[in-house]
Amino acid sequence: MTRYILQRIFLMALTFFVITGITYVIIRKAPGDFTSMKAGLQGELTRGALGKQFLEAERRLYGLDKEWYIGYGEWLWKFVRLDLGTSREDGRPVATRIAEALPITLLLNVITLLVTYIISIPMGVYASMKKNTLYDRVSSLVLFILYSLPHFWIALLLLMFFSSSEYLNLFPLDGIMSDWAEEYGFFGKIADVAWHLVLPVVTLTYGSFAFLSRYARANMLEVISQQYITTARAKGLSEKRVIFVHAFRNSLVPLVTLMATLLPALLGGSVIVEKIFSIPGLGRLAYDSIFSRDIPVIMAITSISALLTLAGIFIADLLYGLVDPRIRLEGTL
């Protein structure tokens, strides 16, 4: 077991280097000079000699004057010491900007995950009990259609119908909080945030229903076909008891471990939703920093999402081994 974990950690570290290294090279080798772009924007270039000095100082600050592998090494060394650098966009520490954005994205995604699970697991279990009936077929078709609806389209349609002057004006157009939210009390603020999150959460959840409830249905059918369920039925338990006490709990196991892998994927998927609804989260920050060529922020977000993904997969694998002793982790490597 220890050997397995050590090997996994080594591979995870290697993956982390490859991901951040490739991202760094892509940024560094991209055509066009970042510093002159920024300097040009600030009008520094027009000042002749001073502009040149400024450019060189800028290049040194972001390691652009050295070869890419030295620049990457310096970035890595800083990252290990938890120094994420300063944002080129506004000169604030990258850590501060991320600390502002990450909680919003996490809140959005945790709510999304909870709503998805709460709705799709009962749907899946119910469908497994009604296997091959009209309900089963119609619900799986509806879920299939939901799954194929593009997120950004639904987001636009929701905005069009539920927060416009033309149709229903029920929800706010953008942001996560009203401008006047400071006047509200504690619960007022929560209600205000919830009101702002309704449309984004709807956009992020509907697509996962299909996947998760089908998964829940398949798991349930798998469990029901096991011998211990036949035993439970044979000893005269009611069908309700068989389903909810014996089968349901065991069918949940893969779903719980799935959560560990779903969360990081959601973080990446919220770029578009955060952009459309103007939510100042991590996805929005990522999008903005790519366009303003803010190297330290891009690198920080890439490494944080890579770490989250790696940790999520690792935890999922460990959980699998813990809840199902039949899976031998050593055998997989």
Binding site: I19, I26, V271, A286, I290, T302, S305
Partner: peptide
């Protein structure tokens, strides 16, 4: 197999965004 596992961890959409935004 290790390579496959590695690439599967890539933040693909973000990587695509970065490449397209910076390289045109």
């Amino acid at each position: 197999s290790r390579l496959i596992e590695m690439v599967m961890c890539f933040p693909t959409f973000f990587l695509i965004l970065t490449i397209l935004a910076l390289w045109g």
